[in-house]
């Protein structure tokens, strides 16, 4: 620290700070500026008393105004829910199949359903309902258990092959590896693969007739009562190549979906069903 002195060239005092002989002039602030500093200090003190500020060992001082961002979010959500209450009531009471596309209620159901879908369904069905191996693509027009609004609501509410809901959709394909000879399986797979082009005669047809037709039907068009897929269409849940079909016939498949009626509110079940129905495949 150097001496504070009067700088002759400028007529101003120095601050006493010296760096390698370079000194700093003390240029005083305007008075109002100084007062602004004092006011901001005062403001800061008041602020830390009024609002949450000082960190403590667990948590922080709450502030005398009792403000918290979390409470604000909660109030926001509550306000939104209050605003939507009328629509929600309407949705719960609505006759869903009669819902007109483009109506306010329909748009609300889709918007709400889209959020529910992303939070609850996208883990298996994908964020845009494109599905994956074993998880149906909900954008297409192939439906295992039916694609009408009522069918979709039922599937969502009760789920599929779960132990928690007595009304869950249920069916079980046998593992034919324990019942058929390998060459019989090979033949029936070849038969199934040829179905789109009319099928084949011989062993495959016989094995199909004896073992598969009771569920998948004489015409192989499937049976929605039992969730038996249509084997003639272009949609394959697990894959339509020889290896995959062989595996399906040998070991069977057992896709499970939870009963969302037990986990979601009625309006959420309904809105997510409307959303799924709107994806381009609803019947």
């Amino acid at each position: 620290m150097a001496e504070k002195r009067l700088d002759e060239a400028t007529g101003q005092h120095t601050t006493g700070h010296s760096y390698d002989g370079i000194e700093e002039l003390n240029t005083p602030l305007p008075r109002w500026w100084l007062w602004c500093f004092y006011i901001t200090i005062l403001w800061g003190v008041i602020y830390t008393i009024a609002y949450p500020a000082w960190p403590l060992i667990s948590g922080a001082t709450a502030g005398v105004l009792g403000y918290s961002t979390r409470a604000e979010v909660a109030a926001d959500i509550e306000a939104h829910e209050a605003k939507n209450a009328a629509l929600v009531a309407e949705l719960v009471a609505a006759d869903l199949p009669a819902l007109a596309p483009g109506s306010d209620l329909h748009r609300y159901a889709i918007a709400r359903g889209s959020s529910v879908f992303k939070a609850q369904c996208s883990q298996c069905h994908g964020s845009e309902a494109a599905g994956a191996k074993g998880y149906p693509n909900l954008n297409d027009d192939g439906w295992l258990w039916g694609g009408s609004m009522e069918d979709i609501v039922y599937s969502v509410r009760h789920g599929i092959r779960n132990d928690t809901d007595d009304d869950a959709r249920w069916s079980e394909m046998p593992a034919f590896g324990e019942m058929l000879e390998p060459e019989e399986i090979e033949a029936v797979v070849a038969y199934v693969e040829a179905l789109p082009s009319g099928g084949t005669e011989g062993l495959g047809a016989t094995v199909y007739e004896d073992n598969c037709s009771s569920c998948h039907g004489e015409e192989s068009l499937g049976d929605r009562e039992q969730g038996a897929p249509n084997l003639t269409d272009a949609i394959w849940l697990y894959g339509g190549d020889t290896d995959t079909i062989t595996e399906t016939v040998t070991n069977s498949r057992f896709g499970v979906m939870p009963a969302w009626g037990q986990r979601l509110s009625e309006e959420d079940v309904r809105s997510v069903s409307v959303y799924v129905h709107s994806r381009g495949g609803g019947e």
């Binding site: 994908g126 964020s127 845009e128 494109a130 693509n137 954008n139 297409d140 027009d141 192939g142 789109p196 249509n230 269409d233 272009a234 949609i235 381009g280 495949g281």
Partner: peptide
């Protein structure tokens, strides 16, 4: 163009883009 999924196969084999 909606790219998730890039296309959808319908039951009659036709291809749909969104």
């Amino acid at each position: 163009p909606v790219r998730n999924p890039t296309f959808v196969t319908l039951s009659d084999g036709s291809i749909r883009n969104t």
